[in-house]
Write a protein that binds this DNA or RNA. Structure first.
Length: 574
RNA sequence: CGGGGAAUAGCGCAGUCUGGUAGCGCGCAAGCUUUGGGAGCUUGAAGCCGUGGGUUCGAAUCCCACUUCCCCGACCA
């Protein structure tokens, strides 16, 4: 491709709304333009990158036994009513009517349609397993779209769904998809981690996220250097920590703590550490309010709590009712109205001894309390947010923390959809059984943004070569010098003949502008063809990612560059 | 939805407090000069000042309502 005919409008300044690097750089470099909140147009450079990502995905999924389909983006409400997601999905699901008044939605995901498709045609265990995927636009009317492509409303997603006749088969499929995902992100040239994840709203029993490592990532990941356990902090298991240091000791008593509502204030006022205070939280849920007990130095992990309660939703930060007093709640001497409330306790509560807790009236706390003073709690649960000081929940080793961007997610679904939607088959014995499903997503357009977050500098993007819009850029530095143009053309055609994806910057611009555009767009390998080098029989080679520069004799240039490209391709086409 | 901010030329901004009919940089067009890291000079085109209403002789500026966008929280690829 010649740059003079490429539609790649670059900008010196980014729109001020672009705050994250990927949004600013993809806009400045001419990959995307915003049309509305969370809705973007993709320009030719973006299409090239997206196509390369999609090609890798297709190759690896097909290798792993999945087949591509294309499902409608506009889907009938009836199917969504069968799975009850028409009611449960909420306003994030974009709904509308056709001219006849029938209800439809724009697909945010496609479990219903794929299940309908498979149940219609697959009747026997002999036809299983089936593993289908598509790459298509999705729409989720996000509460708050943000960070450009990272959390848009319309986005490109690969979504795949597998159907097996039993749990063992579904487990094998899950593993095959897990392995394929590792190869996909590896081949994209990204630094990433597969991590254990909460199963969230989609449900199911087993789940891994694939996180691209980047300081600007939204997700926090912990990883144990000792045993390799890696998980989203939302889920990360922490070991019970050692008992808190006992206070000086003394008689169990109520003590006035005027205006001291926070753990910090109370502990300072009473001369104890936060770890010697029992924190009581009032949490509202769809199944009614719950009191949560946790040691004062620990943070409640809302995701763990939600899944422990099997709740649809939970809310903290609500005014307590049942005669409870915000800032002075405690599990001992509960007001009569609150005595029947469900109480759950974090594991850390089991380490408390001689502790402080709220006295259930304004400006009063209790001190020198013991666990024997607490109402019967039953088993304690792991409800804590993993912190830097926590030992790994699996082996007790030390956790390291990373920031990550979730670009892929694999779920073991089981029969969550096949049961209500009656996606059944006949087994060997002629018995009708629900298929065992899995679902597997990859955020294709998000990968593009995540790659930029992970690979950029002040000048622009530093694409990993396998997903760069072009592998090599040739910059003809003097457009009006026949010798330079001829040398650039020779290189361009020579590289193209070798199957290299090359952009020739033949525009009638000053060299500085070509340098700036090349670094902004982020071409991984750049060849500078200029009068200065040609007089010495060389062209200049630049590796955008490493910053390496070297002069190549013209006679060797093509062979050397082809070798570099092939080394960086990570088996593309394999 | 709760909290905070913004909307003036394609992009970045000033002008708003203290009303008098719109300006700067970049970009764009033309000319001359320049030519290896976003050139210099000259000339030029380009703006229902987010929308609607109000106050006023007069509104980008003051008042009211609305819309859109961004940031922080709850949701997700």
């Amino acid at each position: 491709m010649r740059h003079s005919v490429l539609h790649a409008p670059t900008l010196k300044e980014a729109p001020k709304e672009a705050e994250v690097p990927s949004h600013a750089l993809l806009t400045r470099a001419g990959f995307i333009r915003k049309e509305a909140a969370g809705i973007y147009s993709f320009l030719p450079l973006a299409i090239r990158t997206l196509s390369k990502i999609e090609r890798i995905i297709r190759e690896e999924l097909e290798r792993a036994g999945a087949q591509e389909v294309l499902l409608p983006t506009v889907q009938p409400a009836e199917l969504w009513m069968e799975s009850e997601r028409w009611q449960k999905y909420g306003p994030e699901l974009l709904r509308f009517k056709d001219r006849k008044g029938n209800d439809f939605c724009y697909s945010p995901t496609a479990e219903e349609v794929i299940t309908s498709l498979v149940r219609r045609d697959v009747r026997s265990y002999r036809q299983l397993p089936v593993n289908l995927f598509q790459i298509a636009n999705k729409f989720r009317d996000e509460i708050r779209p943000r960070a450009g492509l990272m959390r848009g409303r319309e986005f490109i997603m690969k979504d795949g769904y597998s159907f097996d006749s039993d749990e063992a088969g579904a487990t094998r499929t899950y593993q095959a998809m897990f392995d394929a995902y590792n190869r996909i992100f590896e081949r994209c040239g990204l630094a990433f981690r597969p991590v254990e994840a909460d199963t969230g709203a989609i449900g199911g029993s087993r789940s891994h996220e694939f996180q691209v490592l980047a300081d600007t990532g939204e997700d926090s990941i912990v990883s144990c250097a000792a045993c390799g356990y890696t998980a989203n902090v939302e889920k990360a298991e922490v070991q019970r920590t050692s008992p808190a240091v006992a206070a000086a000791g003394g008689r169990f008593e109520a003590v006035a703590t005027p205006g001291k509502r926070s753990i910090e204030d109370v502990s300072r006022f009473l001369g104890v550490t936060p770890a010697q205070v029992l924190k009581t939280l009032y949490v509202d849920t769809d199944a009614g309010p719950v009191l949560v007990l946790i040691r004062g130095d620990r943070t409640l992990n809302e995701v763990k709590l939600k899944s422990a309660l099997k709740a649809q939703w939970i809310r903290l930060d609500v005014e307590p009712t049942h005669d409870l007093v915000a800032g002075f709640m405690g599990p001992i001497k509960l007001p009569a109205a609150a005595a029947k409330l469900r109480v759950v306790a974090d594991d850390s509560v089991g380490t408390l001894t001689d502790f402080v807790c709220g006295g259930n009236e304004a400006d009063v706390h209790l001190r020198h309390a013991e666990r024997s003073d607490l109402p019967a709690l039953g088993d304690t649960l792991d409800l804590s947010m993993a912190g830097a000081a926590d030992p790994c929940g699996r082996c007790g080793g030390a956790f390291a923390f990373f920031r990550g961007i979730e670009v892929g997610h694999v779920f073991f679904l089981g029969t969550k959809y096949s049961l209500p939607m009656q996606c059944n088959f006949l087994d060997k014995d002629g018995a009708e059984r629900p298929m065992v499903m899995g679902c597997y997503g990859i955020g294709v357009s998000r990968i593009m943004a995540a790659a930029v977050e992970q690979n950029h500098d002040a000048q622009g993007v530093k694409w990993p070569l396998p997903i760069a819009p072009f592998e090599v850029a040739i910059l003809g530095l003097q457009w009006d010098d026949e010798g330079v143009v001829a040398a650039a053309r020779e290189l361009y055609e020579g590289l193209r003949a070798e199957g290299v994806d090359v952009l020739w910057d033949d525009r009638e611009l000053r060299p500085g502008q070509k340098f700036a555009d090349a670094d902004l767009i982020g071409h991984p390998l750049q060849v500078l063809v200029g009068r200065r080098g040609l007089d010495q029989g060389v062209v200049e080679f630049k590796d955008r990612r490493s910053g390496e520069r070297l002069n190549l004799p013209r006679v060797d240039a093509i062979a050397t560059i082809v070798a570099r490209v092939q080394a960086a391709r990570k088996g593309l086409g394999g």
